[in-house]
Design a protein around this nucleic acid. Structure first.
Lengths: 193, 193
DNA sequence: TCTAAAAGTTACAGACCGGTAACACCCTAG
DNA sequence: CTAGGGTGTTACCGGTCTGTAACTTTTAGA
């Protein structure tokens, strides 16, 4: 039994993996801890021995998801060592893939929508992780030799973020369908300056 | 008592107005029907006499919010009669105002995040309303005499949507701070073609 | 003023939620 | 073999949620 997730890892890891998946698919308030532990092949007590609350679990999930996202950037570096411009284009393609294969958007943005209390502990984490994402994109643009790297990175960030939310509302045939064209022509125009 | 919302209108209108406000601030799953009716100075039974379920209320709220948004477009026409380009610039300024004054994003996008069931009745409505928004922006760009009006409108849509979600996560000092500059230079570059 | 509809009130059903207590089990390190 | 930590099991607490029933009060129109 124990469902399809990580058959024989330790309970904590199974819980974390399952929770990421279920929070992503059904939202944070849309899934209870009982459902998570059952899908992870364990039980509620074990969850609360490893995480002090559901909120803590949510935060750990966000960190884990962000870490996976960061790993993708390392792949870009491995695939195009030293070629920052090629890595930027790889980022564009990767984003397009995400838009085509997933319609539930960004976990951090979704969490910010659901957790509305301004002092919710997850909000600090969300802000930090999002800023780190932005910083990394700015650095990539700068290292690719682009002038006004911040402006390009921020523009690409907004297009990316907007595309993910657009897929959630209109679908992948909406404005997000033009993402690659938008991003590529933006990069080209910034490079031309 | 009855709180600050629409002192002496009819209960249905007070409920609708209050629900829009509370859903916007606290999210759909973050507010119960009891809290809504209490803030609206009425009671649960009256709510269920006017709306057959919370889901129906949510849908009515989305329609009402979208109608308010549509009214803004009519203001643009009133302020710049016939001058579609001026209306497009007015739209950019309006978006900037929204970004500065509200950090809870778009109600439709937020609803799409919270209501994850693919067959949820609200999802049809969200898609329709979002498509209508898009169509209106495309028409404005086209009527402003811009070539590739769809591409410009879609790019502006993604920037807008992205900016709203960015405000929710990073805050108004993040990438969204450059929205006006991005939008204006985009419009200029499309006009130049 | 009389009447009928609308609105308010109270109580409740049934479900689900996050979180905890108490206890039994198993598996591995010594 | 044994001790102990990690895990599983069951039951429970108090709270919240959507939605309904039955009844009373207010309001508005003829």
């Amino acid at each position: 039994m124990t469902d399809g997730v990580a058959e024989r890892s330790r309970p904590r890891d199974r819980i974390l993996e399952t929770a990421q998946d279920m929070f992503h698919k059904h939202g944070i308030k849309g899934v209870g801890v009982d459902a998570i532990t059952e899908a992870a092949g364990t039980n509620k007590m074990t969850l609360y021995r490893h995480f002090e609350s559901k909120d803590e679990l949510v935060i750990e999930c966000l960190r884990a998801t962000a870490a996976k996202g960061a790993a993708v950037w390392d792949e870009f570096e491995a695939q195009h060592p030293g070629d920052k411009l090629a890595q930027l284009h790889a980022w564009v393609r990767k984003v397009a893939d995400m838009l085509a294969s997933d319609s539930r958007g960004c976990d951090m943005a979704n969490a910010a929508v659901e957790l509305t209390e301004t002092d919710h502990p997850a909000r600090r984490v969300i802000k930090e992780l999002k800023q780190a994402q932005r910083d990394r994109l700015v650095a990539l643009c700068r290292d690719a030799g682009i002038g006004q790297a911040e402006l390009l990175a921020d523009t690409l960030s907004l297009l990316f973020e907007g595309a993910r939310v657009s897929v959630q509302t209109i679908g992948s045939e909406g404005p997000s369908a033009q993402f690659v064209r938008m991003a590529e022509s933006l990069i080209a125009s910034f490079r031309a300056r």
